[in-house]
Design a protein around this nucleic acid. Structure first.
Lengths: 209, 209
DNA sequence: AATTTATTGTGAAAAAATACTCAATTGAGG
DNA sequence: CCTCAATTGAGTATTTTTTCACAATAAATT
């Protein structure tokens, strides 16, 4: 414990959590690291090591208690609370995310969606929210305690908007824009580069990775 | 050369390619590994090593020729040709992707989009394509030489459909469904787990990764 | 033509991440 | 209450990935 946590761990923790949820739904209440590994194509020792960075949650001879481990992971992942998010850009991707009901109920609350297109501003989306003017983004973020921004805008304006939300005090950005964002290091970033996924895939197909 | 290529390289190659495109648009025709590194937050030595797995494309004293390196990367990434793709699931995400014009013109051609909902089947999307019946998926994949499938369906049916496209001879899957897919190892996989991105991000915010 | 500056490619070193091993526990079954 | 099978946690070893360091080379300048 209190060692440095390998970077890949944050992704795997979210994967463990997802598996536990589905196990929990099926009524399973105990699971071993080897079963987890089997389900996720990971070595059991990896699973144990990942979890052990945060404490000894398992019981020797038995394994891990599913509901308990879920609670622990919720805490570690920071989803034992609710995060207010804003979606910037009401294009295909922005709207698809806004209508992605899974977000709610998993700790993420859509507080706003903004765009610069006058034709879009004012339009209602599901759940009663309307598309607001991107110009008001600073006030929106501050007044509604928004901590996470989803950037779903063209690459040309993404850095500009990122700087903007950073100066409004955002803590993390999920970036769908196809470019490398420059951010102060206290702001966390997750990149989702759809097009690059396709290219990585074709690379793998061609090179048999 | 002909060493084993580290797994993270496939993602970085796609990132280099994207940067080169934007440089090329600006008219830059030569770039050094340190400039690339600067733009992408990578060490210059990493850039050089990544590229050197595939050959010595740079010129000492000068750097890399942008158009040349782009062509090389297109070949390596497998986007010097066109890939036929099918989108499975015409929900929010499936439709957003279908309307994502960037795919075309980057080597990926949307050949079909299918769903099981009779209310959706037959509906036209942009570019003239209609939503087809998922039952015909096998014939569609075989007749149209589709090699890549995008899975944008609920988790419950994702493994079933994955097995189906695999048996139709698909070579790679981009998976948006929130579960771990079990695939034969000759089928390549890229996972895009939207919800987990949010959780990784909240983890990073909370744990200051 | 010699010197200087820039920059690559690569072998070697360092760091990071993964996998192994096994003592320590736990619970179950006699 | 003893033994056995299962399983964790953690120290150690191994593998993978990144970074360093520098000879080799290219172009520009004197």
């Amino acid at each position: 414990m209190t060692e440095k946590i390998p970077r890949p761990v944050s992704k795997r923790l979210a994967i463990y959590y997802r598996l536990l949820r589905s196990l929990s739904k099926k009524g399973t209440d105990t699971i071993s690291s080897s079963k987890i590994g089997q389900s996720l194509d990971l070595k059991p020792s990896q699973v144990r090591k990942d979890l052990s960075y945060f404490g000894g949650f398992g019981k020797r001879g038995t394994g891990y208690n599913v509901p308990d481990l879920m609670k622990v992971l919720e805490k570690i992942l920071g989803v034992d609370r609710s995060w207010n998010i804003i979606i910037i850009g009401a294009g295909n991707i922005g709207l698809a995310l806004a209508n992605y009901e899974n977000l709610v109920g998993e700790g993420f609350h859509l507080s706003a969606i903004v765009d610069s297109d006058p034709a879009k501003i004012g339009r209602k989306i599901q759940n009663g929210l309307s598309i607001e003017n991107v110009n008001e983004i600073d006030a929106i973020i501050k007044n509604r305690n928004i901590e996470i921004a989803v950037l779903a805008v063209p690459a040309e304006i993404a850095q500009f908007l990122a700087d903007k939300v950073v100066s409004s005090g955002i803590k993390g950005i999920i970036n769908f824009a196809p470019l490398h964002l420059d951010l102060p290091k206290h702001v966390r970033l997750e990149d989702v580069h759809i097009l690059m996924m396709f290219k990585s895939l074709s690379f793998k197909i061609v090179n048999g990775e």
